[in-house]
């Protein structure tokens, strides 16, 4: 019998601690599949953030180093400048990347740092217990917007990918989701393209992944997965926002 599905080599044999229905485990899975398929395990270095995915290093069987909250793009900059042969990625949540780390992210993009950013957007601070994130939707209830986010007081959901798409140093940005088999396949394709952009030295690449958080959204899993498409993707439309990788890398 032919084996058609197994654990990626670069995914450790450790049970995920993530909540049922969380997107992180799916993203980890497709990233480690890609690390195997693209033969990157011995040259890739990952920088996970404080937050639920701080434990990414328990699952990825690759070199990893923790970053201070929001500083991933700066750490990756230093690492890549010191070791240009390495393939460097940051793995960041929306609070990490779009609030405390906005400056580091924007300026790494503007310098065209040849790094890859995996930006996991679940519209909420997960590990700290469900507070408002910069990407929280107007009207969305969180522990710090108990009556729903009010744009007059708390502003609107921040669309980082659209902002960064205007920056010249950016090679590739796509927004994907991991809430259906079709979307997961598209997400994997996008992350492959982002890694390839870095391998080809084209500049800053980022994939924003809309990711369900049933626990902090106070929803069951199917409901949360549905909410990604029905509500979240209306504010954060899926698709390519910037792509200078050229035809040779598009597939």
């Amino acid at each position: 019998m032919k084996k058609i599905y197994s654990r990626p080599k670069s995914l450790k044999k450790t049970a995920f601690h993530y909540c049922p229905g969380c997107g992180h485990s799916i993203i980890h899975r497709i990233m480690t599949e890609l690390i195997d398929e693209m033969d990157l395990q011995d040259k890739i270095i990952g920088i996970p953030p404080p937050g639920c995915s701080v434990f990414a290093y328990n699952y990825f069987d690759i070199d990893m180093a923790e970053s201070a909250h929001g500083r991933g793009a700066a750490v990756a900059t230093g690492m890549k400048r010191a070791y240009p042969e390495g393939i460097i990625f940051t793995y960041q949540g929306d609070g990490d990347l779009a609030a405390i780390g906005t400056a580091e992210t924007v300026h790494a993009a503007n310098r065209g740092e040849n790094i890859t950013v995996i930006f996991v957007n679940n519209a909420v601070y997960g590990m700290t217990g469900g507070q408002m994130a910069p990407t929280t939707l107007v009207g969305q209830k969180t522990t710090t917007t108990p009556y729903g986010r009010d744009e007059r007081m708390e502003g609107n959901a921040l669309r980082i990918s659209e902002m960064l798409a205007l920056v010249k140093g950016v090679a590739y940005i796509e927004r994907v989701a991991v809430n259906s088999p079709t979307n997961i396949r598209k997400a994997k394709k996008a992350i492959r393209k982002a890694f390839q952009a870095q391998i080809d030295g084209l500049g800053f690449s980022m994939v924003e992944v809309l990711s369900p958080c049933p626990t902090n959204w106070r929803m069951d899993e199917p409901e949360a997965w549905q909410w990604v498409s029905d509500v979240m993707a209306k504010e954060f439309p899926l698709g390519v926002l910037k792509d200078v990788t050229g035809e040779s890398h598009a597939s």
Partner: peptide
């Protein structure tokens, strides 16, 4: 803040 975190990244390397 960015500069010292770049230092951290380069030192890791």
């Amino acid at each position: 803040i960015a500069a010292i975190n770049m230092v951290y990244g380069a030192s890791l390397a």
